[in-house]
Simulated assay, not measured.
Amino acid sequence: MTVPRLHPTLSCDAHDITVDTGVDVEADCTAGVILVPSLFITDRVQCTTSDH
């Protein structure tokens, strides 16, 4: 069985997901977060935020 894991630059606790990057962005995600795996972005994490 494969154990799910996050990218090495990601960490999470009960209330926060942290992405280690050179950009400091804070997003209100009270409605939830969607994590989408990608075969095309393999060496980094891409973060996109939207109000919709």
Rank of each mutant, 00 (worst) to 15 (best):
M1G: 14
M1I: 07
T2L: 13
T2I: 14
T2M: 13
V3G: 01
V3Y: 09
P4C: 06
R5G: 05
R5D: 01
L6S: 05
L6M: 10
L6T: 09
L6G: 07
L6K: 05
H7W: 06
H7G: 00
H7T: 02
H7Q: 03
H7E: 00
P8K: 10
P8T: 04
P8D: 07
T9D: 15
T9K: 14
S11Q: 02
S11M: 01
S11K: 02
S11P: 00
S11V: 00
S11R: 03
C12I: 06
C12A: 11
D13K: 00
D13E: 02
D13F: 00
D13L: 00
A14M: 08
A14D: 14
A14T: 12
A14Y: 11
H15P: 02
H15I: 07
D16K: 04
D16I: 04
D16F: 06
I17Q: 01
T18K: 08
V19T: 04
V19G: 00
V19S: 02
V19I: 14
V19D: 02
D20N: 11
T21S: 15
T21C: 10
G22H: 07
V23H: 05
D24L: 11
D24A: 13
D24R: 12
V25W: 03
V25H: 05
V25Y: 01
E26A: 12
E26D: 08
A27R: 03
D28E: 09
C29P: 00
T30D: 09
T30L: 08
A31Q: 13
V33Q: 03
V33Y: 04
I34C: 11
I34P: 00
I34R: 13
V36P: 02
V36F: 09
V36C: 13
V36I: 15
V36D: 12
V36T: 15
P37C: 10
P37S: 15
P37T: 15
S38M: 10
S38K: 10
S38V: 10
S38L: 11
L39M: 14
L39C: 09
L39P: 08
L39K: 13
L39H: 12
F40R: 15
F40I: 06
F40W: 14
I41R: 15
I41C: 09
I41F: 07
I41P: 01
T42Y: 08
T42W: 06
D43Y: 06
D43K: 14
D43I: 04
D43P: 03
D43W: 05
R44C: 14
R44K: 15
R44A: 15
V45H: 07
V45S: 08
V45F: 08
V45T: 08
Q46N: 12
Q46C: 09
Q46W: 12
C47T: 13
C47R: 09
T48P: 00
T48V: 13
T48A: 12
T48L: 11
T48E: 10
T48R: 12
T49I: 01
S50I: 00
S50H: 01
D51K: 05
D51F: 01
D51V: 05
D51N: 06
H52K: 05
H52P: 00
H52R: 07
H52A: 07
H52C: 03
H52V: 06
H52S: 07
